[in-house]
Amino acid sequence: MRAKEIFLNGIVKENPVLVLVLGTCPTLAVTTMAVNGLGMGLATTAVLVCSNIVISLLKRVIPNQVRIPSYIVIISGFVTIVSLLMEAYARELYQALGLFLSLIVVNCIILGRAEMFAAKNSVFHSMLDGAGMGLGFTLALTLIGSIREIFGSGTWFGLQILPEAISPVTIFLLAPGGFFVFGCMIAVVNFFRRKSDRLVRNACMNCPSIGACQNGREGEF
């Protein structure tokens, strides 16, 4: 695969959120505001790029038996570093993301990419893959955050968009609104790429726990 292809793969063709439906927890939890979605996306991208590079560097050193624990340790190291840096230099965002910053560790996109891509490919390609996947994640989160913020509080990145006279539909900011907007976004994506079912099966190949999941075995969402 060429470098450009690897990079764009994560942004469009295999967008981790809208096509592969991975990392759903942060996607739903932090997207009440566009800026939070963007911040979460960038934090995840940073962790993803770093962990992909390191895991790709160590792919010959790490024995197969302790593969997953090693990945988890490396990933949680980077997550802690990112959250310490954010606490020091971007405090407001750190507080807005809260618990979900630590939960980047268990974001299946990161472990999935480590297992599927970084453990098998060169350092440079792993870095590109991490950046592409991370940016795809960031874009999707910012998009969902924008929709929820515009409908839910009438603003976009804090700027007033809807006239004050229209009272915002606050349910968009609450849990049901999150599920609803996410569902509609995937429906829109499905509408444009209905025929290619192949991708969905690829999606589950990314998941480290494919063995236990029904979707993985039956190849259907």
Binding site: V61, I62, P63, V66, S70, V73, S76, I81
Partner: peptide, 15 residues
Amino acid sequence: PPLVLTLICLIVTAA
């Protein structure tokens, strides 16, 4: 395997 895992833990903790 345990040796490598321990080593990785130590390095990450130090970092």
